[in-house]
């Protein structure tokens, strides 16, 4: 699987938020999308998953845009949004069923994965619960379960650690690493820089709708001219430079 974002310019109501953003992700790569609030991370993600149409530029998965083959394009993506998107009217079990149905998954295989994940996230006893009964962290776990049962080749994960307890964060990181080893690509937007530094192969640092810096930790250190710096320290430098 390869994701290629090329000269992406897009935003809301003809006001460009993103200005010619380009980057790509190869098989088995985990890319951290980093930036201050309002940098354009979520807007980039919305363009990739097809919720927004670019003004200019393209987003391609395996060489094809969403318009060329929407069904195949979408089938390749597992999306975990920043704010859990759940149906108020469906129980946890029905969310899994709905995902199986909408993605045309093999029911037995999907439930096998789901049961493993539900057990991992301690949700097995809550299959009949509604989202309104869940805490934010539990909702996030449901989103994770639904995204992972699809077994997509590209994970788009927006702020996955928000609201999760430390055990769940550990389990999610393990899951991501496991899928990465199996060849899945992951684009993860996060402000939890210590985790990002630990697990990401490369970083795309965004600022004001543009790519500010890009590459491995070594590349970023070179870019910021901070040879021993952590991601957190470089982020601080970025904020200082921009007067935040």
């Amino acid at each position: 699987m390869s994701l290629k974002v090329e000269s992406l310019t897009g935003g809301y109501s003809r006001i460009p938020v993103l200005k010619s953003v380009s980057f790509d992700i190869a098989d088995g790569e985990l890319i951290g999308l980093i930036g201050l609030n309002g940098a354009g991370k979520s807007t980039t993600i919305k363009h990739i998953i097809g919720l927004m149409k670019p003004f200019e530029g393209t987003v391609k998965i395996d060489g094809r845009t969403i318009n060329e083959d929407p069904e195949t394009y979408r089938r390749k993506i597992g999306f975990i949004p920043e704010s859990p998107l759940l149906y108020d009217e469906l129980t946890l079990k029905e969310h899994v069923e709905m995902t199986i149905m909408a993605y045309g998954l093999d029911r037995e295989r999907a439930w096998e994965i789901a049961n493993h994940l539900l057990d991992l996230f301690r949700l097995t006893e809550r299959l009949e619960w509604f989202p309104t009964d869940f805490s934010k962290g539990m909702k996030q776990k449901v989103m994770i379960v639904c995204a992972f049962i699809i077994e997509p080749s590209l994970f788009i994960i927006d702020e996955p650690f928000l609201g999760l307890d430390p055990l769940a964060i550990r389990d999610l990181i393990q899951l991501m690493e496991e899928h990465k080893r199996n060849g899945a690509s992951i684009l993860m937007s996060t402000h939890v820089l210590a985790n990002a530094e630990r697990i990401c192969d490369k970083f795309v640092v965004m600022h004001d709708g543009e790519i500010y810096a890009m590459g491995t930790m070594a590349d970023l250190r070179k870019h910021f001219d901070m040879p021993e710096a952590t991601l957190d320290e470089m982020y601080g430098r970025l904020a200082d430079r921009e007067g935040f």
Binding site: I49, G50, L51, P70, E71, T72, Y73, R74, R75, I77, F79, L85, Y87, M98, A102, Y103, G104
Partner: peptide, 11 residues
């Protein structure tokens, strides 16, 4: 209004 139905590979 459901975002899910915009994301599903459902023809």
């Amino acid at each position: 209004e459901s975002v899910h139905f915009k994301l599903y590979p459902y023809t």
